[in-house]
Amino acid sequence: MKPPPFEYYAPTTVEEALARLAEHGYDAKPLAGGQSLIPMMNFRLAQPSVLVDLNNIPDLSYIRPNEGGGLSIGAMARHSMVEKDALVAERAPLVHETMPKIATTQIRSRGTFGGSLAHADPSAELVCASVALDGKFKVVSQQRERWIPANEFFLGLFTSALEPEELLVEIQLPPFPKRTGWSLMEIARRPHDFCLIGVAATLTLGKKDQCKKARLVYLSAGDGPMVGQQAAKVLEGQSISPELFEEAAEVASSADIDPSSDIHATAEFRRHLANVLTRRALEEAYKRAIPNI
C-alpha cells in the first residue's frame, strides 16, 4: 500500500513549524522519524492531509547536561544518537540500557526520542522508561509553553496530552538518584519486535539497605504505561529479600496491570510473564544498586 496524497511542509525553525500546525489544526501531523507514522500511512490507518516535517530543524536535535546531574534531550535526537551518547550512559543508565532494545538498527537510525513519546504507544520502551524516571516534557505552541510530567502525558492508547497545534520539543530527565539500580526487561517473540510484556524498573536503597523507593512501569500491559503502584507499596520500607520480590511480582501481575489477549498471547500468559519479569528486573536492579552504596 502507498500513502494517500498530503500537503508537505519542511520548516527549518520551530516557529515556522508551530505556525503550520496552528494553521492546519487537526488536519496536520508533525513528521518526526516517521517510523510509526509512515507505516500507518502506508496502510492508510492514518491519513493526515498535511505533514509538517521536523527533520530540517537542527535546533531540535541535541543532548545536553543539566545542572545538578540531569539531562535534556531534544525531541528530534535520533535513537542511534542517544544510544551511543556517553553522557546518557553516565547520567541515565536506564535509558542507555533501553536504547538498543528499541526496534531494529534501521529503525533506530531514523526514529526519534520525542517521536516515540508523542506516538504514545503503550508497548514503547521509552514511554515506560520516561515514566519510571519521572521525566518531564516541554510542549510548545504559538500561544504558550508548558511542562508536562511523564506520568500525566500519556492519556491512553496512542493518546497523549498534546493538542493538535502543540509540539513536543524537549525531554528533561532529573538526576539519577543515588543508591539506585535499574533494569529494563521484555519478552518478545522475535528480538526487537513489539514485546508481549515488559517492565522498566528502578530500585533505590535506603541507609539500612532497605527498599526506599521502587518504580515499576509495564509495557504492553494496558492502554498506557502501567505503573506498579500496589507493588511499590509492597516494596517500599521493607528489607530486601527474594520473598519480598516474589510478593511484589505477585501483586504487580495481578493488581497493577491490565493486559489484553490477542493472537500472540492470552492476558493470563502476559500476567504470568509480568510476574517472572518483575522478579528478574528487581533482582537485577538490586544488584546494580549495591555497587553504588
Partner: peptide, 27 residues
Amino acid sequence: CEHGVCGACTVLFDGNPVRSCLMFAVQ
C-alpha cells in the same frame, strides 16, 4: 512488507542503514 518489518528495502542514508519504505523521497 512496506511497514518496516522485513528489512528488504534497507539502504544507506548518509551512511546509516534505514528502511527506504519508511521515508519519503522528498526527504
